Lab assay of single mutants.
Amino acid sequence: PEEVRRLVEELYRKGVSPEQVKKILKKQGIDEREIEKVLRRIG
């Protein structure tokens, strides 16, 4: 979803590592598979 992409990109631009991005967003209840999809697209 758009909102997940925005959150991931925001953290990524701040220099947060992909592993940390995953941890942070998982705590917020976001599906890990969604996060990984976005990270793959960015990375």
Rank of each mutant, 00 (worst) to 15 (best):
V38K: 01
D31Q: 05
E32F: 02
K37L: 09
E34Q: 06
R5D: 14
D31P: 13
S17T: 12
R33I: 12
K37A: 14
V8G: 01
I30N: 01
K14T: 10
E32L: 05
E34F: 05
R40K: 15
V4M: 09
R5H: 14
V16G: 05
L25I: 02
E9Y: 14
V4W: 11
R5Y: 15
R13L: 08
K26H: 05
K14M: 10
K14S: 12
L39G: 01
V8A: 08
K27S: 10
P18Y: 04
K26D: 03
R6H: 07
P1L: 10
E32V: 06
E34T: 13
L25H: 00
I30S: 01
L11D: 00
E2M: 08
E32Y: 03
L11V: 02
G15Q: 04
P1K: 10
I24F: 05
Q28C: 06
S17E: 07
S17G: 11
V38A: 08
E9V: 14
K23Q: 13
I24W: 04
E32H: 04
K26I: 13
G15D: 03
L11W: 05
I35S: 01
I24R: 07
L11R: 00
K22D: 01
P1Q: 11
L39T: 02
V16M: 10
R5P: 04
E32P: 06
E32S: 06
I42Y: 10
I24K: 05
K37Y: 08
I30M: 14
E3Y: 08
I35F: 02
L7N: 03
L7G: 01
K27E: 09
D31N: 07
Y12A: 06
G43C: 14
E32T: 05
I30R: 02
V38I: 11
I42H: 06
Q28Y: 07
K26S: 12
K23W: 10
P18A: 12
E34S: 05
G43Q: 15
R33L: 12
V4G: 01
V21Q: 01
K23L: 13
R33H: 11
Y12K: 06
L25F: 02
V8R: 00
I35C: 02
E36G: 02
E2W: 09
Q20K: 12
L11E: 01
P18W: 04
V4I: 13
P1V: 09
E32K: 05
I24Q: 08
R13H: 12
V21N: 00
R5V: 14
V16D: 04
R13P: 01
K27W: 06
P18S: 12
P18T: 12
E10D: 11
V16H: 09
K14F: 07
K22M: 14
E10K: 07
K37I: 12
G29H: 04
E3P: 07
V38H: 08
Y12L: 15
V16R: 09
R40S: 13
E34A: 05
L25N: 00
L7H: 05
R40F: 14
S17W: 08
V38M: 05
P1E: 14
E34K: 03
R6A: 10
R5K: 14
G29M: 03
R5E: 15
V16W: 12
V16L: 08
E3I: 08
K37W: 08
L25P: 00
K26Y: 07
V21C: 06
K37C: 11
G43R: 13
E9I: 14
E2R: 10
P18N: 08
E36A: 04
E19A: 12
Y12N: 03
K14Q: 10
V4S: 02
V21F: 03
K22I: 12
G29F: 04
E36H: 03
K14I: 10
Q28H: 07
D31M: 05
E9D: 05
K22E: 04
L25R: 00
V38W: 14
V38S: 02
E32M: 04
L11K: 01
S17Q: 08
P18R: 14
E2I: 09
P18G: 09
R33D: 14
G15W: 03
E36R: 04
E19P: 08
K37V: 07
R13E: 06
L39D: 01
V16Q: 07
L11Q: 02
K27F: 07
E10V: 07
V8K: 00
E2F: 08
I30W: 14
R6G: 07
R6E: 08
K26E: 07
E9T: 10
R33V: 12
L25T: 01
Q20V: 11
I24H: 06
R13M: 09
E10A: 11
R13G: 07
E36I: 05
E19T: 14
E19F: 12
G15L: 04
V21E: 00
K26R: 12
V21T: 08
E36V: 05
E34P: 00
I24E: 06
K37D: 15
L25A: 03
R41H: 15
Q20E: 08
Q20G: 09
S17V: 09
R33G: 11
G29R: 02
R13T: 07
I30V: 09
V21A: 04
V21S: 02
V38C: 06
Y12F: 12
E32A: 06
R40I: 15
E34H: 04
K37G: 05
L7W: 06
E10T: 08
K14Y: 07
G43K: 13
E10L: 07
I30H: 13
L11G: 01
R40Y: 14
L7T: 05
E9C: 11
G29N: 06
V16F: 10
E10N: 07
E3M: 09
G15S: 04
Q28E: 08
R5M: 13
I35E: 00
K37H: 07
R40C: 01
Q28A: 10
S17N: 08
K27M: 11
E19S: 13
R40M: 13
V4A: 03
S17H: 10
L39A: 01
S17D: 05
I42V: 11
R6K: 12
G43M: 14
Q20W: 13
R13W: 14
K14A: 12
E3F: 06
Q20H: 09
R33Y: 07
E10Y: 07
